[in-house]
Nucleic acid binder design. Structure first.
Lengths: 351, 351
DNA sequence: ATGAAAGCGCTAACAC
DNA sequence: GTGTTAGCGCTTTCAT
């Protein structure tokens, strides 16, 4: 150790396979064999290599390995969700992560925030990073451009909504039926003046849930009223404002089907403020985990977003494993959870 | 086009920089220059290249680029959260994503589920994938091994909890003060018999919040009671069971500080079942977004996990940008949100 | 059972 | 302004 110790500090560099080979006194190919568990190596040689990797804290460079591997697989998938801040999206992520982890895949997750430009930017970013597949919550636009971008050879699966203009694997809830059941439940509790709040109608789930609402009313011979069918609810504030509007009608509804959790939350805030929470029935869709603690406890059509995520990941891995069957549409049924707010009966006599 | 068209289908392969160069009639280096916006290229040449990239739907291979770039940066960071299913973790993710997206970085996100082995496995997986930095929610173990794994040159920042045994950038809430304020608030409403639920005491946040609870009691000359200090609450069920235990005491508490949202939720379920929700005061920590809709509305010390995520990401990017200052401890204050449950006064006369 | 050489897709360094 | 060469860290192919 000289006074001016200007050895090119190898400590700053991450060790490479070369360093391991040098320390173990073998060729890099042998190190590669040991790391990848190819068996044609002596116990003794393998031991030397293992010792060297541990001594250097060597971790293989996955990107370099992927590059040289003929398949180019990175053991990485991408997940595009609506928003990291949305409990539904998080639950989907949870399901995806569960399956991906079991397969030793890493997950890139990002939010589109419903924005098509963001969606496309993210798809490009992840394609560029050589993901082995994509799970996408589609935004409300023609998805042919996205599909062309992804190309015919890279596995991709859609969740929550049908992508417009393309045939692909899709995992969704039984939106239309679930909405119909919810509204039938309200009708069974004596309601005729039933309002519905949905997302913007360019989103397939909104269309489907609205259709289910209409199905139920028609089946019960209840005339549709335009002023009860509120679309474009994209935030709690939208739900809040819409509920205020409903209450201001000459004939306000006696029940509400809120087809998104944001809509339900906004509406409940108004109902509680007006002390109508025990007068007007409400069924949400998208569960809120603590809905049982609300005043009154919130009845919902409970989707199973974790399961949706799991199934999406399983479908994706099936494609990654070269399943070439036709695109599948998988439906995860929602179930009615009656906790109170949806069982408020219509009291005849209110205006 | 011959009858037996067995051209090696170039359509199956992703186009490379070579394909673009060939189509544009230039060298690959020129394509590289155009892609990376290095200016020393004729307008005309650039146009040809752009046209070729569009025609082939070319996307550069980020991994190969990173490998050849001397810095080896991948514009990718990793985030280890407690659990994707936990709203607090999701909010942290939201803050991180916001900042990362602005810097055009992609985010690997994964859950440790509080498991040290999982944490180490994930760190290895992400190091191997050449992330440019890590944001970690530390599990309750000595982190020197993890720190050695990461090495001295890779930026890493910790969130929510102090990592044990190492000095590093950490972003946390003001856990001790927040807990003290919460308990003081309960004392100010006439309570002396105040219980506290915390996580396992190997987690720094639990220790700090418990200390704040003790601070408040000591300052008010209220004797500590072991049976009121419940640790190891790791799930809603734990909170539920603990609350049942508290109610079964000879002298049950008249107020509760629930230092995790799971604890609060479990406790409220018991209180509602026993119709005590308007008798026993409760303040949570970790906000529940819809706590205002509970019966009664839930008072909390509201942390700002999105802000914690943002600050963590900003700190990480500062390190990535070669900030070499000493490790920083950043505190994000929690604020008292008084919505009702925490303002229930002690009614003298109850046993 | 082990190693040498070529090359994955790209950028760095240097030529012209 | 543009092209050539070398090489990032690894796996593949082929030799020994």
């Amino acid at each position: 150790m000289s006074i001016a110790d200007n050895t090119p500090a190898s400590s700053a560099r991450r060790p490479t396979i070369k360093d391991v080979a040098a320390l173990a006194g073998v060729s890099i190919k042998t190190v590669s064999r040991v790391i990848n568990g190819e068996s044609r190596v002596t116990e003794e040689t393998a031991a030397k290599v293992h010792q060297a990797t541990r001594a250097l804290r060597y971790l293989p460079d996955a990107a370099a390995a992927a590059l040289s591997r003929s398949s180019h697989e990175t053991r990485t998938i991408a997940l595009l969700i609506a928003s990291v801040g949305n409990p539904f999206s998080s639950a989907v992520f949870q399901g995806v992560e569960e399956v991906a982890t079991a397969r030793h895949f890493a997950v890139f997750a990002a939010s589109t925030e419903g924005n098509p430009e963001t969606e496309e930017r993210l798809v490009r970013a992840f394609l560029s990073r050589n993901v082995d597949g994509l799970i996408i919550t589609p935004t409300a636009v023609d998805h042919r451009a996205i599909a062309e971008l992804i190309g015919p050879n890279l596995p991709n699966v859609y969740v929550d909504r049908d992508p417009l203009g393309i045939a692909a694997d899709v995992i969704t809830a039984n939106n239309r039926e679930a909405a119909r059941l919810a509204v039938e439940h309200l009708i069974a509790h004596g309601h005729h003046r039933i309002a519905a709040m949905t997302d913007q109608l360019s989103v397939s789930t909104a269309v489907d849930r609205r259709a289910g609402y209409i199905d139920a009313l028609i089946a019960a011979d209840i005339p549709l009223r335009d002023e009860y069918m509120i679309a474009d609810i994209g935030s709690e504030t939208d739900g809040f404002v819409a509920m205020e509007g409903l209450l201001a009608l000459p004939h306000p509804p006696t029940a509400l089907f809120a087809s998104r959790n944001m809509a339900a939350i906004g509406a409940i805030r108004v109902l509680q403020r007006e002390h109508l929470e025990h007068q007007i029935a409400l069924i949400g869709m998208d569960d809120i985990d603590t809905g049982d603690l609300f005043n009154p406890p919130l009845s919902v059509m409970r989707q199973d977003p974790v399961q949706i995520g799991r199934l999406a990941a399983e479908r994706l891995f099936a494609r990654i494993d070269n399943d070439t069957s036709l695109p599948q549409q998988i439906i995860v049924p929602a179930e009615l959870v009656a906790r109170g707010s949806g069982e408020i009966r219509h009291k005849h006599g209110r205006s």
